[in-house]
Every structure is written in structure tokens, then in C-alpha cells.
Design a protein around this nucleic acid. Structure first.
Lengths: 222, 222
DNA sequence: AGGTGGATTGGAACGGCGTTCCATTCATGT
DNA sequence: ACATGAATGGAACGCCGTTCCAATCCACCT
């Protein structure tokens, strides 16, 4: 922590640091999912011992939170500025959707300890355009909250879906399987599910997600 | 599985069964959260060995899914019928909200393997009233999907919050702590968060949740 | 009534995990 | 040069999910 410590860290060859650890953790998570992040695998990749990692990181929770923050912060920062508030909200929503699609392990983490992680960043990017739309007070907070909950809800849900093959082959087979299951349900007890099963098979996650955003925006601004 | 097997199960004193196991699992989960459910604790409570449990349950995933299904199915079945479609949707939403508030461990599980669990049940209870509102086709499916995602998003988020003390004392201290953190952020970089931090401290989760439902309903029916 | 064999049990054992512990090494101020 | 605290890395601990298997049970057959 002192000047001394920081100087030492820079001169030891390939010294450990929280940044290097988080970077390696993200690489492991992206490559093999949540279960691929273990302190042993991490130590092997960093060519050190598991004990050394604990000098820089309190525990696995903190490591996962830091990895998620890292990913979310970068994605949020990369969002292009939009003049129209509605477009700005759509941009944030899509950015989060794509981020969790690319890093599915981050979805559950955003639920586990929401207050700790980059939640304020997300709330800000959703809430600021709502202020520009003229919302204030309780309605402002509640509307932002609805949008953020919806965004994270869809993102978390999608993260649970099996990983997509490059050719989308697995995805189609998977959706067909679920649709078949839904259609086997009793049409009298499950009229809605039975009827919409086919459309479910062909639906586009991204488009459906955006439809929901527009639904909420319509409710907010009507 | 044969007639023989079922008869045997009934006559062995306190014979194991998937139902008894799931019941005990729910008790453990409610008492100590997700981390309290271990096969050793389960075996101790059922006065048997961990190996015996595997005869009735494939693995921990299936056990968690069964426990979640059990809770969700009961809650869904208990919902009073509502004539007004909007009221029916609000009733389902509140039922799910309260269910996950009472059994926070079920929140993450509904995200992990959505297609396997009681998802069709939830979709049906949300989608049927939408059909009564005259929605059809893609708009019907996408609207139901938005509602379900929102409901589960909020529920999952709330499940992550620390358990409430009987007197709501811990909750207030917790919200005050988060609000204080939010207010410490730079007002120029975080105008929205900084401004709404105080209302966040006093907000009512349930009311905020219902506000979001009404927002989506307004978007759907306008 | 007694034996038989599949259904069921329960406890030991295995490998892997997060975490702790601690002897050792390193970079620096004196 | 040496002393000192920061940092390292590998062994060890306790717990987990899961597997394995000898022992037990019980519906059925003879």
C-alpha cells in the first residue's frame, strides 16, 4: 500500500497484482464458464501458488465481483452517446444484453450482491435519460428500477441458456426441444403455452428483449 | 417402479421417497439458505446415509429443481381467480414475489435451468390473461415474455438482499448504508444516483415491483 | 414356510474445492 | 551488509458432491 510496496511490485518480474488476477479470472470464466474458475486453475495460469492470490484478493466472492465489475464497466463506458433519451436507454439495454451474452457467468453475479458491484453505473445510465424525459421523484426512481430489473432479468435468463454453437445449430435443436415439450402439455390446462410454443421456437432473443424495453418505455412516457 | 416396488416403499418404516427428501430439502433451505442444503445435512435429518438419497434423486441440481417446483407450484395453485385480466396478472406477479421473498433460495434456481422447472406454469398464468385482453401472435408471446422476465428479475434481485429481521431493523440499516454509498458518488458523474439515493432508502420493494408491472401493462394495453 | 433376487439402504471412500497456514524469498531503508 | 515487512507458493485442513459396495429388506415363487 505504501510507496515502497508499489515500487516493489513493479520491479519483481511478472509480479502479481489484482489487475492481473482479475484478467486471468475473466479469461478462465470466458473459456470454461463459472465452474472453470478455481484458485488452483488460476494459480496454474499465473504460475504461482493459490496462497499468493489471497494476498491480493479477499476470497472468491470478491474475485467474481471484480471480474463482473471489470466487464460491465468497460461495456458501459463504450456506449455511444445518444441525443434521444429513448435511444440512450435502448443503447444501454442492448449493451448489457450483449455483455452478458458474451460473458454468461456475469449474469448470476449481478444478482448475488447487487449493491456491491457496478450497479450504480447501470442505474445512472438508465436513470439519466429518464431525467431528460422530465421524470422526477418517486416515479423517476421506480421507472429506472423497473428498467434495470427487466434488463438484468432477461440477461440473467439468457445467461442460463446453453452456450450457442458457432452455427446456431445447438440453439435451434434446443429451442425445438423446449417447444416440443410445451406442445405436449394439455391444451385445456395450458392454452397459452400450447398455442405459443411454435412461435417460441423461432423467436429472436434480442428482438424480444428490445420489445420489452419499448413496452416499458411506452408505459413510462404515455 | 413396479407394483412391487411401490408396495415395498409403503411398508418399510419411514421409507425414503422423493417427496420426503424434497420436503426435508425445503426445510433445510428455508432454515439456512442455499448453503445449508448438503447431502450430509439432508442424510442426517432423514436419518439415513447420503448414498440412499441418490437412489431417489439424480443429483443436487435435480433436488434443487424439485424443491423450487414444489414451492412454485403450490403458490401458483393458491392464487385466487380474478375476472379482470389485469388483476389476474397482478395477482400472479405478487404471488411469485412473495414466494421468492419467503424462499430466497428459489430465485437463483429459476434462472439456472428455466426450461426444466415450473416455467410453463408461470408463463401460462401470465399469458392466459393477455389472451383475454385480445393479444395474439408475436405480440402475445413477447408481452408475456417481458412480464415473466421482469417478475423473475425483481424476484431474483430481492432474493439477493440480506434476510430481513422480524422488525425490519436490519433492512433499514442496510438500505441506509447503500443510500450513503450512493450519495458519496460524484454528483456530476452520477446525477441520477446521487439525486435518488434518499428515496431509495425509503422505498417499498413490493410497491416498486407493482409499479413496474403496471408500467408494462400500460405499455401492452395502450 | 422358506428361499431368492431385485429393490433399497447407509456408511466409507474419492477427488476436488475454497481457504488457511507458514516457511521462504524478495526489495528496500538504514 | 543487514534487518524488516511485503509478497510468494506449496502443503494441509475441512467440507462438498458423488460413487461404490457390502449389508439389509421384502414381494414373490415354489
Amino acid at each position: 500500500m505504501s510507496r515502497r510496496g508499489m515500487a516493489a511490485r513493479n520491479q519483481r518480474s511478472e509480479a502479481l497484482s489484482k489487475d492481473r488476477i482479475v484478467e486471468a479470472a475473466i479469461a478462465l470464466l470466458d473459456a470454461g464458464g463459472a465452474q472453470a474458475l478455481t484458485f488452483r486453475a488460476l494459480a496454474a495460469r499465473l504460475e504461482t501458488g493459490s496462497g499468493a492470490i489471497y494476498w491480493h484478493v479477499a476470497d472468491k466472492n470478491e474475485l467474481l465481483a471484480a471480474a463482473t465489475d471489470h466487464v460491465v464497466a468497460r461495456v458501459i463506458a463504450d456506449i455511444a452517446d445518444e441525443a434521444d433519451p429513448r435511444a440512450a436507454i435502448r443503447a444501454v439495454a442492448l449493451a448489457m444484453f450483449d455483455a452478458i451474452d458474451a460473458h454468461p457467468w456475469a449474469g448470476p453475479q449481478l444478482f448475488r450482491e447487487p449493491w456491491r458491484s457496478s450497479m450504480p453505473l447501470i442505474f445512472e445510465r438508465v436513470g439519466a435519460p429518464l431525467m431528460a424525459l422530465g421524470l422526477t421523484g418517486r416515479r423517476l426512481l421506480d421507472s429506472a428500477s423497473a428498467l434495470v430489473h427487466y434488463i438484468l432479468g432477461v440477461a440473467g435468463q439468457n445467461a442460463a441458456n446453453p452456450r450457442l454453437a458457432p452455427q446456431d445449430v445447438d440453439r435451434e435443436a434446443f429451442l425445438a426441444h423446449v417447444a416440443a415439450q410445451w406442445m405436449q402439455l394439455d391444451p385445456e390446462a395450458y392454452p397459452f403455452v400450447h398455442q405459443t410454443a411454435l412461435q417460441m421456437r423461432d423467436h429472436d432473443d434480442r428482438a424480444q428483449f428490445l420489445f420489452g424495453i419499448d413496452l416499458i418505455l411506452a408505459g413510462i412516457t404515455r
